[in-house]
Write a protein that binds this DNA or RNA. Sequence first.
DNA 1: GCGACTTTCTATACATGTATAGAAAGTAAC
DNA 2: GTTACTTTCTATACATGTATAGAAAGTCGC
Lengths: 218, 218
Amino acid sequence: MPARTGRPPKISKTDILTAAHRVIHEEGTQALTMRRLAREVGTTPMALYHHVRDKDELLLMLLDDYAARMPSPEPPAGAGPGERVVAAAVAMREGLMGVPWIVEVLRADDLMSARALWYPEEIIDAAVQAGLTPEEAVDAYRIIWHYTAGEITARSAAARRREDDRPTHRSQVFENLDATRLPRLAALGPRWAELTSRDTYDKGVRALVRGLLPPPPP
Amino acid sequence: MPARTGRPPKISKTDILTAAHRVIHEEGTQALTMRRLAREVGTTPMALYHHVRDKDELLLMLLDDYAARMPSPEPPAGAGPGERVVAAAVAMREGLMGVPWIVEVLRADDLMSARALWYPEEIIDAAVQAGLTPEEAVDAYRIIWHYTAGEITARSAAARRREDDRPTHRSQVFENLDATRLPRLAALGPRWAELTSRDTYDKGVRALVRGLLPPPPP
DNA sequence: GCGACTTTCTATACATGTATAGAAAGTAAC
DNA sequence: GTTACTTTCTATACATGTATAGAAAGTCGC
């Protein structure tokens, strides 16, 4: 490995990531701006862009670090493939929910970070074990992933909406329901808010597993 | 209705929405900035903020207009409840995919616009018809919605990634796969890109319907 | 040591969403 | 009319991500 040419770097990708972690940990995710980060590592904002393509990629790398610490629990002993898929999906979602800025990243890529590949691996493996072809297993994983990403996004949007208590556009909609054209929704009416605040993630994954995997032998 | 007090408005919400539609139609979604919009209706940017809380709300209202034109196809004649759910979900997704800036809005709310309420109504009604309680039917709708939102987001992220052909972070990940810890993924290897470009939305909805609704009578 | 080349860093600039302060233009009370 | 009040609009300012141009600081061939 010969010495590199060019002006020697003052900062490294690692410096940036370390500082980013520190800022987020101490002051929360909204404090993480490129300018702030630059100050933190003692350089100018644009210097960061030689180590990182853009802020999205930075967040992706941060996610990677977080993912390395995400648990990869053993599947419950003696569980069938279906239960393994459910367990992996639930763990994956739980891990991601702990990352506060996850929503910005979910838009950026449809597969997770390198160090979280344990989850797809486990899901795909269990699906194959259940009798799917590898191709079908990949489909199954992607479907579960889309569901998971959508659920997390919606959940965090709902949380933000609760913070600033804007009259939620939605409540207005539900005031003026035309009971003739939309009888079901009108009947639900005021209960909608309560009903849609329930956590139905598990229910959804289980439904997907039931619908995607062949039924287990009796 | 007495005359209103205060300085009389120069512009109306309708003016704004009309101009916004025109800009998007003629120059695409990235041309729609608050400054541009202000120029278009002949006022200053900040004046818009008296008619619209922020850009997100503006997009939400735009979506509402689009949604009014989204088709609400008759369910296939003689179809069971399951088929009705699938048909509605597919139509909903198709309608939303036609809205180019849909991704910005999907983060903002977890129920769709007022004039697209036909879709949840149809899905919930079919689910009740299939034998679910109203509460379960709402759960089912929300689960389908999360899946749909996640799928659309991922799809549009993938499309953007193809435009600028950045080496996708993902491809790098798949180069350095540890075949011992991640045998399934390693085996898939180069086929991953091809496999994950397939459209599996239908498959997913059908699986959800199978998993959520009671089996139809034979 | 010197010029070419490469990599990293700095300075400056721009577009964007939006906060804030206050001016403008009307109605209502007297 | 004058004053108070309300609504809408204008001017200005700021933080943010990032583009662009070029300066700085090294290595390499000679």
